[in-house]
Structures are given as C-alpha cells and as structure tokens.
Simulated assay, not measured.
Amino acid sequence: MQKFSIGSLSIPDSSAPLIIAGPCLIENRAMAVKTAEELQRISRAEGVGFIFKGSYRKANRTSGSSFSGIGDVEALEILDEIRTTYRMPVVTDVHETRDVALASRYVDVLQIPAFLCRQTELLVAAGESGLAVNIKKGQFMAPEDMALAAAKVAGTGNQRVMLTERGSSFGYHNLVVDFRGLAKMAESGYPVIYDATHSLQLPGAGNGVSGGERQYMMPLARAAVAAGVNGLFFEVHPDPSNALSDAATQVALDEFGTIVKQLLHLYRCVQSLHSL
C-alpha cells in the first residue's frame, strides 16, 4: 500500500487509524477553535492523530437558500490558525480548479467532494498542488473505479492520495454502504478512509436539507474498522442540532472522545490479527 506522511502523521499507521474530524462548515472562529481544542485533548489522551476538517465554503447544497459560508478568506484563515496553533494538519474541500490555488495556501490536504470525483481537471489541479489529496467516492461510482480517479492525481507525480467511502445511492433519499467496496478500493494500493457520518445521510430528505440516521453511526463505523480501513472521517460539532450544515448527522463534540476510544481499541485488535 502507498505510504506517505502529512505533517507528523504516517499513513497508514498500524498502531492507530488516521482520523479526519471537524465541523461540516466553518461557521465562525469560536466554534472551530472549540472543536480543535477538544480534538487536541483527545489526541493527547488516546495517542491518535487527527486531521482537522472544515469546509470553507459549501458549493453542494440541497436548497439555494442554505447557508454556504462566512467568506472564503475568513474561513481559510481560521483553518490556517488552527493548523498553526494546534499543530494539526487541516483539510478542506475544493470545487473548481480555481479554488485549488487559493485553498492550498492555507491547508495541508485538499478534498475532492463525492459529486466531483470524476472531474479530471479538478483532480489534476489538486495533484499538481503537491498537497495530499482525499477523494470522496461518488455515490454513483463503483468502488473499483476509484482507482482511475486516484490515477489522475498520481499522474501529476503526486502519490499522496486517499480514497474515502461515503455510501452509495440506493433509491431516492437514501444511501447504503457496501462493505465489499472497502476491500475493492484497497486493491488500488491507496489508503482507504470510511466516512462515518456522510454515509448516514438521507440526501434531500429534510424539507430542503439533508436528513440522516445518526443512530447507526457506531455499528457501521465498527464494521468499517473490522473490514480493515486505514482511517475514519467524522463531522463533529459542539451543538449538532443547531449546526448550519449537516445537522442530522454531525456527532456531538462532547461524545466524540468516547467514540474514538472504542474505535481505537477495535482497530488495534484488528491490526493484531495480522500478526497471527
């Protein structure tokens, strides 16, 4: 499997999963900093590395009236403050090739949203940035085809690529996770991340916003760890019910430490099986 580093983090790591976590969207500085402080506390307590996730702008909204951001530069400067203050790598989404140059100045990882995972020019631009690239699997994509998306990035000479499973469309307003897909994506040779919160979305099912079934987060996350993923992705928020984006699926920040502890224990059990 392709191995690389992001800051001080080694990917993949047999001792702990990579965890990408943070709010869906940078709503304000206070919320983002509070989240980063708690992630740093969990990191020190559990010995696990985090990449802080926050979208500086949301281009994919169910309704045109949905909140999409506080302003690109203001949000990106908050992300830059977090990576500097807390010495934690940060990741954000890019939606167009012109976004890459701007975002690259503030973050360590560029994320390609699921609906854009086939956009060749965007993938190439992200690869050419030299930053690590996390590609979300499209809800419409066969898992084995994600190797072709990764190849577009790798073709620039940038091998620091991760692939993320976030569910597949199953009729209207519903997603399912085919756990065979985790193994199929791993055959690409790139690290595989499981998105434990977006996989629970009910797209467009909430009267103009996406609904979700947060109560199934732990069973599916445990299944993904047992299946051998290299990392996990969570959207977390200090007050999910009042989040301005993805309120139905974000995890409560004050519950996240317990979640990480449980999944880390399971991850290490699974890794120990490889030595038998």
Rank of each mutant, 00 (worst) to 15 (best):
F233H: 06
A226Q: 11
S199N: 08
A205D: 08
A226L: 15
Q201N: 05
A224M: 04
V251S: 14
Y216Q: 10
G189E: 13
L253C: 07
M218A: 03
L202Y: 12
V192F: 06
P238R: 10
H198E: 11
D195F: 03
A221P: 04
F234W: 01
Y194T: 01
Y190A: 09
G206H: 05
L220W: 09
G204S: 09
H198W: 04
E213M: 08
R222L: 12
A248W: 05
L220N: 06
I193M: 14
A221I: 03
L232G: 13
E235T: 06
L202G: 01
I193F: 12
H198C: 02
Q250R: 01
F234A: 06
S199T: 11
A227I: 12
V225C: 12
A221V: 06
L253N: 05
A221M: 11
V192K: 07
Y190I: 13
L244V: 14
L200Y: 10
N230Q: 15
H198S: 03
F233E: 03
A243H: 00
G206Y: 10
P203H: 06
A243C: 08
V225W: 01
N242Q: 15
A227T: 15
A205L: 07
P219G: 01
G212N: 05
S188P: 07
G231R: 05
G208N: 10
A226T: 15
G208W: 11
S210I: 07
L202N: 07
G204C: 13
R214V: 12
P219L: 11
A226C: 12
P219D: 09
A226S: 14
A227F: 07
S241G: 02
V229F: 03
